[in-house]
Amino acid sequence: MLKRFVIVMLLAAMMSTVGLVSLTAQDSIEVGPITQAIIDRDELICGVNASLTGFGVVNDAGEYVGFDVDFCRAIAAAILGDATKVSFRPLTGAERQAAIQGGEIDMMSRNTTWTLSRDTEWGVIYAPTTFFDGQGIGVRAESGITSIEELDGAAVCVQRGTTTELNIADAFASRGLDYEPVPGDDGPSTFQAYLDNRCDAWTTDKSGIVSYHATSPNPGEHAILDINLSKEPLGPLSPQSDPQFAEIIAWTIYGMMNAEEFGITSENVGEYLESDNPEIQRLLGIGDNASGSYLGIANDFMVTVLEQVGNYGEVYERNLGELVPERGLNALYIDGGLLYPMPFR
């Protein structure tokens, strides 16, 4: 009997120790090199697009605004407590790999497709997809063209150094069609070549086509073919050298999606600080519930993110609500979309 008692007490002590080690490890997370660099300089350096309305552009006040831009601000809020502490680096499509590999930026949030080759050759960690897109083809409405087959032998403007360039080649080849590529160095120059009648059609992600057509001199003169040439999951990415930083990016995005699901916004987040819902308590880091402490940042980091940037739905509506009013795949799973945020537990 005494022997059994001793064994039980030893097991209890061991379990207690395991729990203590777990709690101690949780409360003393060692931040990664990129996270530490951000803290030391008191600023996040984020690579973005500077010429795609809705996603990343410089407004008349000289400020960067857009859907992708707001995720940079959210990460700054999560780590530094201030969404304004971001230095933006405008990047063309061809400049992205060198910028992320060379340490010029801490992270990138610039309509960049998640692919096998980029994931491995670029040496990056992709965050959860923030925008599910597909490649399309833009044409002049007066041309009467409604299918890719009608573009056999046509000239097509396309941005070089992108998956778009590879996808359009595959699309024509797989259908036994010919075309003449007219390459552009970046999005604006590619679209301008199309406007200058150097090509019969042009191609990029559908969200980009919508953006450029909407901001063109005569939006009604253009149309988009009813075809998806590819899957284009777009989202932020960061170097593989700091997985701890990548976790902060991922869980900030999941947090913004979860907040939309719970109905927590930048306007009402304060009201939820007294919530007795355990899921919301964990999301917001209320009381003894661990949240940011798992990531080595402020436990209530999501409160700051939501107050200063908003939830996913707010970010979408603010930047893309007029351009792409139907969220489609980019709606929450409860609304028929693909956004399925992981739980804070």
Rank of each mutant, 00 (worst) to 15 (best):
242 D>K: 08
241 S>V: 09
274 E>G: 12
220 G>I: 02
264 I>T: 02
250 A>K: 03
279 E>W: 09
236 P>L: 05
232 E>C: 10
247 E>V: 00
251 W>E: 00
265 T>I: 00
242 D>H: 06
281 Q>D: 06
263 G>V: 01
231 K>C: 05
240 Q>M: 15
276 D>M: 10
273 L>V: 08
219 P>F: 11
221 E>T: 08
292 G>I: 09
243 P>Y: 00
219 P>W: 03
257 M>F: 08
232 E>F: 11
259 A>H: 02
235 G>C: 02
238 S>M: 14
291 S>A: 14
245 F>A: 03
223 A>K: 13
238 S>R: 08
270 G>M: 05
237 L>F: 03
254 Y>H: 15
287 G>M: 09
256 M>V: 09
226 D>I: 01
290 A>L: 12
289 N>L: 05
227 I>W: 15
228 N>T: 04
262 F>T: 03
243 P>E: 01
236 P>I: 00
280 I>Y: 12
286 I>Y: 05
270 G>I: 08
236 P>T: 06
225 L>S: 03
243 P>W: 00
226 D>N: 09
234 L>T: 04
274 E>W: 06
229 L>M: 12
219 P>N: 01
250 A>H: 01
236 P>C: 09
265 T>K: 01
217 P>E: 15
230 S>E: 15
281 Q>W: 04
252 T>P: 09
225 L>M: 03
275 S>A: 11
275 S>Q: 07
285 G>W: 02
270 G>Y: 04
242 D>Y: 00
285 G>N: 08
288 D>F: 13
250 A>D: 10
218 N>T: 10
239 P>C: 00
271 E>W: 03
283 L>E: 02
242 D>F: 01
282 R>V: 04
274 E>P: 07
257 M>I: 08
220 G>P: 04
267 E>Q: 14
222 H>D: 07
264 I>V: 08
223 A>Q: 09
244 Q>F: 02
287 G>R: 11
237 L>R: 03
220 G>L: 06
245 F>C: 06
249 I>S: 05
282 R>D: 13
289 N>P: 07
271 E>T: 07
260 E>K: 13
257 M>P: 01
231 K>F: 11
241 S>K: 14
275 S>F: 08
255 G>E: 05
242 D>C: 05
254 Y>A: 03
249 I>G: 04
216 S>H: 06
253 I>A: 11
239 P>E: 00
273 L>M: 10
285 G>R: 06
286 I>D: 14
229 L>R: 04
281 Q>C: 04
228 N>H: 14
286 I>S: 12
253 I>H: 09
234 L>C: 15
222 H>W: 05
223 A>G: 07
223 A>S: 14
237 L>I: 09
240 Q>N: 14
273 L>R: 13
249 I>K: 02
245 F>L: 09
286 I>L: 15
